[in-house]
Nucleic acid binder design. Structure first.
Length: 302
DNA sequence: CCAGGTCAAGGGAGT
DNA sequence: ACTCCCTTGACCTGG
């Protein structure tokens, strides 16, 4: 089992001034995009890619080999074609370099595009925008020359239950066929944290059986989703859908740190040992304290 | 220079 | 039909 974290690194910025902060998600609002245009996108993107490598190097130094890359690395990615960016050749060569570093250090990276990507939406415009953005995530993986498999997953939720979970899941499967082959080969789907949304078992029956994409098991979401299986059953079922080593999510409830906190919100650190039931899988820790939570988890539990 | 209001985006619950 | 919230961190502006 390898354990990693998502996007932002706190440790890499210890003792660093604001000015030289290492960040992979420099972005901009639409107004700035309209006034400064693509050259500014390229400028921020190049800085983000440069810093992403620094974070990966830091991860390697801490023996952290799982990392979720930020979807904000290319700001406002829905507004342009990647190949239209100024300095595309430079961007591309830095992405190849990043990919080489990832491969030669056996790092497993993933993407988790935002919750606005809903290919099951009843609104066709939302579907086509989501397809475009998901395909672009796959294009970034391709730019890094990472193999097209769920070893490098692009993970999303179904994102809607309209008009009911069955029909929405069908639309998810229908829209899946509209994605690029590159994206299809990497797409995974994750269980939800609400009793009205999708459990692992529902995803297995409604999505996996139809289009065969793996299920990302989120241990924290499991506690708050539909209660139709034990954790061991749900984890085992989710793991069974993977051809590559499975990826899972782990977090602790904010309630454990703050009695007023939301149960479904993420805590700063992890307070429970990850249940494996004898299975092998990778883990992305979703905790506010990011890499520091990974280091603390290993100290506390391993 | 900094605090805090705001941000492209959808969905869902409540009214 | 409408409002507000979810959830998140960084942007950006006004003081």
């Amino acid at each position: 089992m390898s354990i990693g974290y998502c996007c932002i690194s706190l440790g890499v910025n210890a003792n660093r001034m604001k000015k030289d902060f290492i960040s992979v998600n420099r972005g901009m609002i639409k107004k700035t995009f309209d006034s400064k245009g693509l050259p500014y996108v390229s400028e921020l993107t190049l800085q983000n890619i440069t810093d992403c490598k620094k974070i990966l190097q830091y991860n390697v130094s801490k023996d952290i080999s799982v990392y979720r890359m930020s979807s904000d690395m290319f700001p406002c990615i829905g507004f342009y074609k990647i190949k239209d960016l100024p300095k595309y050749d430079l961007i591309k060569s830095k992405m190849i370099d990043l990919g080489n570093y990832i491969k030669s250090n056996n790092i497993r990276v993933s993407f988790h595009p935002s919750h606005f990507n809903i290919i099951a939406s009843e609104n066709p415009d939302v579907v086509s925008r989501s397809i475009d953005e998901l395909d672009k995530h796959a294009e970034l993986m391709d730019m890094m020359e990472l193999e097209q498999s769920t070893y490098y997953p692009i993970n999303i939720h179904i994102g809607t239950t309209k008009p009911n979970t069955t029909i929405a899941a069908q639309r998810f499967c229908d829209s899946f066929s509209l994605l690029s082959d590159s994206c299809k080969s990497r797409l995974t789907v994750e269980n939800d944290d609400s009793p009205n949304q999708y459990s692992v078992k529902m995803l297995y029956d409604m999505v996996y059986k139809v289009i065969g994409i793996p299920i990302v098991f989120d241990q924290h979401h499991f506690l708050y989703g539909p209660k139709d299986q034990s954790m061991e059953e749900a984890l085992t079922l989710a793991i069974s859908t993977w051809k590559t080593k499975a990826l899972t999510h782990m977090s602790s409830s904010k309630k454990l740190e703050d009695i007023k906190g939301l149960a479904t919100a993420h805590a700063d650190y992890i307070y429970e040992k990850i249940e494996t039931f004898g299975l092998d899988f990778d883990v992305e820790i979703e905790a506010k304290c990011k890499d520091l939570a990974v280091l603390k988890y290993r100290k506390d539990f391993i």
